[in-house]
Design a protein around this nucleic acid. Structure first.
Lengths: 292, 292
DNA sequence: GCTATAATATAAATAATATTTATAAGGCAA
DNA sequence: TTGCCTTATAAATATTATTTATATTATAGC
């Protein structure tokens, strides 16, 4: 059984027109007819009910059932193709959200450079949520990402390497700068500068807001950590971050006193099905060493 | 890309000999050579390193990587085949462990019979653990099964419908028969009659034994609930069961007082990827109704 | 009821792909 | 070097997929 037939079938189930499916694959219309007949014969079951002249085409029960499996098969096949393509073999594609890049990447980069592997690393910089999707889709091989709750996807291997509480970051001139701690409920009157969508920070932030029954004001959203820190320095708003590294002089960190409180867990994550080649394996080990 | 080539490849990775793989598929040896060449060409990567004359054959990194995906694809394909075969379409294959059969099946059977669907039901009677494996392998469509902890497999849909504490069952003549409750620790001197392997009862039993730091004596193991009850009546040993239905006159139920204590949760379980046809859907609804 | 139209199916020819038979070539051991 | 086992290759053949051209079916508009 040919995977190509399944691809035709999936498209046909979607757009429900033989000629258009044929056109989309650059083949002639009877090709689609024959492909469907082949599938029906090989599975011993009718898959689609054809209503010609009438614009519709419906799946039989068997057809629906096959569709589920067909999608799994085609996805897996495409994933294999992406992973095996020669140009992929010589490098490691890693998802690296900016905040993690700031805190953990310098030491990794230093070590990779020392062993001459830094130029084999390709990075994708997106928020942790987006990064997770890219990993699941097979667009990257591995990711360093942050979560506030355990990842449940059975298909992924998750190796946590650090955990960090969230804290409030304010300008030196801000009244809160004098405090040794603050509870989220006290922040109701404040304006925040936050990350854009796709960052787990927002999940944690929303969770705390829900717990405290108010809807915080958001002055601005950005994708860059540096830009957020600048805004905080200028007192445009206060920040909600989880950082290990010290920040610049203009910004003061104030711990959050809430309990329970979401924690920013950073993990090394990859697909269970992914087999790393020796080059990738070596790079991965360097990273694990850098992160302890 | 043909699934057949992946089947050849998987077998080749396993037995590492072209001629023997060819023989096992009833094709000639060059067929396997060409199949492998096709795969290598289509994925643009070497998959196996051939050491002729030397008995071994090894997978390249790409080969190992492909092997993982190939297995997923072939498994999914075979699952689709089993699900779609015409003779499967007219019936519902259900896993039904004996204890669950005893307690919940009579009412299901009554209702199914009333609507003339009982003869469309095929049942497989094994312990809950074995049943779970059969479900995952695609050998049955649905199962009623018992667990003492939540099922974590993402590929399954689990609908719990009842929960039951475990209890001790003793003969009328047994000293414990007078008691209104007993803690597991007190049962150290007793002999038990238990189910054979594959039943969750043993998981729960072992858990309690571990908690209480002793290794209980087992007088006999059986696959049949009735046979166990007979042995209990004759005072061959005491039983550890989770039953809703009353038992015969010779046997007395004594609740377990331990806290925490494993609970016998019964659920309706099926594969997320399985599409039920209308007949199966109807049968499933009858079952859900019977179980509330 | 026709006729036009849009959709799918079929037949026959052709193209592409897979498999076989027969044979070659590599590598090791006696 | 010879013999043996293993995998590769060439050429022929068989099988399968696709195309072109045309038929069939169902519906809408007249």
């Amino acid at each position: 059984m040919n995977v190509r037939d399944l691809e035709y079938f999936i498209k046909l189930a979607d757009i429900k027109n033989f000629s258009k499916v044929a056109a989309s694959f650059n083949v002639s219309q009877p090709t689609i007819t024959f492909a469907l007949q082949r599938l029906e014969k090989s599975f011993g079951a009718g898959l689609m009910i054809r209503h010609r002249a009438h614009g519709d085409l419906s799946l039989t029960d068997s057809g629906q059932q096959l569709l589920v499996h067909a999608k799994t098969i085609v996805d897996e096949y495409q994933l294999a193709q992406r992973e095996l393509t020669e140009k992929q073999q010589g490098r490691l594609a890693m998802g690296l959200p900016p905040i993690i890049e700031n805190t953990y990447f310098p030491q990794i980069a230093k070590r990779l450079k020392r062993v001459g592997l830094l130029n084999k690393l390709y990075t994708l910089e997106e928020g942790s949520m987006t990064t997770l999707q890219a990993l699941q889709a097979g667009n990257i091989d591995v990711a360093l990402l942050a979560t506030i709750q355990p990842i449940t996807d059975e298909k992924l291997v998750v190796e946590p390497f650090d955990q960090q509480p969230f804290a409030i970051y304010v300008s030196k001139k801000h009244p809160l700068a004098q405090r040794s701690g603050v509870s989220f409920a006290e922040l109701k009157p404040e304006s925040f500068v936050l990350f854009k969508q796709g960052f787990v920070h927002n999940q944690a932030f929303n969770q705390l807001a829900r717990q405290n029954h108010f809807r915080p004001k958001v002055a601005f959203r950005s994708n860059g950590i540096q830009s957020l820190l600048n805004l905080i320095t200028d007192d445009i708003g206060i920040g909600f971050l989880a950082l290990t590294t010290p920040v610049n002089d203009g910004v003061v960190r104030v711990p959050l006193l809430d309990d329970p409180q979401p924690a920013f867990t950073t993990s090394l994550v990859y697909r269970r099905s992914h087999v790393f080649n020796p080059l990738q394996q070596r790079m991965l080990n360097v990273m694990r060493d850098s992160l302890q």
